[in-house]
Design a protein around this nucleic acid. Structure first.
Length: 289
DNA sequence: CACTGGTCCTGGTGGC
DNA sequence: TGCCACCAGGACCAGT
């Protein structure tokens, strides 16, 4: 399940392996893989062909590659969201097609191919115009996404203020990509465990200090995951070269149901949350009444 | 307007 | 062994 650290690993891989290369052809094998691109898959393929891939960029869990093509005033980018199971693979042209290969991009240099593989098709690609928001160039569909904690211009005080402006539960606020981006279910549970907060606590009732502490933990846990190549739970997530991350061995709360809390020994519990699950320690993270 | 909760999708798993 | 319900979950969007 790619979250910010995993997407950053993929970004680095793309930057290393596809930047500067001229696209020769784009083959869309599953129309659903082209998202937010109203003119459709054929238009996506036609307009991408001939363009050169420039720098690979990221905000939160969104990933994009700047393009040199004509585009509009501010240019265009190939935007990607990996969803739950998306992978960007750089493969030799003669490698057999993956079972869930959705898009194949070939280059004029006739070297390796860039493949978008996605089992559950929650992810997708798009060709998007670039717009400028708060001094940063972003693909139009990313314009509403807040800066993530890895962003050099991330403003912790503004993020605390945004979180505390919500009358909803803190976990839901933490997952809201318009407040702080890059935090998904796994790192939300991990940072709540570190901050000793139950996810059902009201966001607007947290003190500034506690909210800031939570953000600091979120940043730290994602940095640690990045240092280890991202979290991985199964073969679904692999980085741009097909290698899995190993951070899952370091998780303290997420997926740890029935295991003792490493801090106090109480058994970690799983609770339903928004049609998914939350994991927490009942002792360290008491539920609000 | 702010907030809530349903929905999309597929493959692996576990119960019967 | 076969069938089926359930689960994973990010982001969008209709409904309250």
């Amino acid at each position: 399940m790619p979250e910010l650290p995993e997407v950053e690993v993929v970004r680095r891989g793309l930057d290393a392996h596809v930047s500067g290369r001229v696209i020769s052809a784009v083959e869309v094998l599953h129309p659903r893989a082209i998202r937010r691109h109203l003119p459709g898959a054929a238009d996506f393929s036609a307009r991408l062909s001939g363009q050169t891939m420039l720098a690979a960029r990221r905000r939160g869990k969104y990933l994009w590659v700047d393009l040199d093509g004509p585009g509009t005033t501010d240019g265009e980018a190939m935007l990607a969201h990996l969803g739950m199971s998306g992978q960007m693979l750089v493969q030799p042209a003669d490698a057999p097609d993956e079972k869930h290969l959705r898009v194949r991009i070939t280059f004029a240099d006739q070297g390796s191919e860039l493949r978008f593989v996605d089992q559950r098709t929650f992810g997708g690609l798009a060709l998007s115009d670039i717009v400028e928001v708060d001094g940063t160039r972003l693909p139009e569909p990313v314009a509403h996404i807040a800066r993530d904690p890895m962003d050099p211009r991330f403003d912790p005080e503004a993020a605390v203020k945004a979180l505390r402006s919500k009358r909803t539960e803190i976990k839901r606020a933490l997952l809201d990509q318009t407040l702080v981006s890059g935090v998904g279910n796994i790192y939300a549970d991990e940072s709540l465990w570190r901050a000793k907060l139950h996810g059902l606590r009201r966001a607007d009732k947290l003190t500034k200090v506690k909210a800031a502490e939570l953000l600091t933990h979120a940043t730290a846990v994602m940095n640690e995951a990045l240092g280890q190549g991202g979290t991985s739970f199964d073969a679904l997530y692999v980085n741009v070269n097909g290698q899995s991350g190993y951070f899952d061995r370091s998780l303290s709360a997420y997926g740890q149901e029935h295991k003792p809390c490493t801090r106090c020994g109480t058994v970690i519990v799983r609770e339903p949350f928004m049609n998914r699950s939350s994991f927490s320690c009942p002792t360290c993270q008491p539920k609000p009444r």
